[in-house]
Structures are given as structure tokens and as C-alpha cells.
């Protein structure tokens, strides 16, 4: 970055940045598909459904408020569970 770049107007993102983002998404997706062929990912939808039922016993949440995600990083597998709780006012107790 040259000195005068600081005075330039902001431009739309460079094409290389766009390329990197697109590649990161598609490569991650295709890796997931490949590993899915011979792994245990099948149980994920069922796990999601049952977790949802458990949480619903206590809090009213919609289907889209729970996300289950399995990621692979090197030798580790990370199971990520994300539940968005509604505003306190709407909570059924």
C-alpha cells in the first residue's frame, strides 16, 4: 500500500479477495461431502431433532433457532451446537 492510497476512495473488493472467499466456501463444502461418504455424519439431522425436543421442554424455540454443525480440523472433530434463545419477554416458563 503506497502512501497516497490512504487518500483514495474505497473501491469494491479486489477480484482476488472475491476468488478467495468463493474458493473457501466451495472447497469446505466439497471436503464435507467427500468425508461424508465414509463417516458418521448421517446422525446429525436426528441429533438436531432430538436436541430441539429437549430444549423445547424448557424454552419455546423455532426450528431455525438451533444449529448443529460438525467440523473437521486436522485430527479433531468439532461438534458445534448453536441455540438462539428468544427475548426474555416471550419466554414460556
Amino acid at each position: 500500500m503506497g502512501f497516497f492510497n490512504y487518500f483514495r476512495a474505497t473501491y469494491p473488493p479486489k477480484t482476488a479477495t472475491v476468488a478467495k472467499e468463493r474458493l473457501q466456501i466451495i472447497v469446505a463444502h466439497e471436503r464435507k461431502q467427500r468425508s461424508g461418504q465414509n463417516s458418521t455424519l448421517d446422525y446429525l439431522p436426528l441429533l438436531q431433532k432430538e436436541l430441539l425436543e429437549v430444549v423445547r421442554k424448557y424454552v419455546a424455540i423455532a426450528d431455525e433457532h438451533i444449529k448443529v454443525n460438525l467440523e473437521k480440523e486436522g485430527d479433531y472433530e468439532i461438534l458445534e451446537l448453536n441455540i438462539t434463545l428468544p427475548d426474555p419477554d416471550n419466554r414460556s416458563t
Binding site: 482476488a16 476468488a19 478467495k20 473457501q24
Partner: peptide, 17 residues
Amino acid sequence: RVNTGDMLSAQDVQEIL
């Protein structure tokens, strides 16, 4: 071209792969 932002850098490709 990497410097002008038209080409993926070595670091970019390495991060992806």
C-alpha cells in the same frame, strides 16, 4: 498482479489448500 489484487497470493492458496 498479486499486488494489484487481481491474483490469489501464495498465502491465499496455501490457506485454502
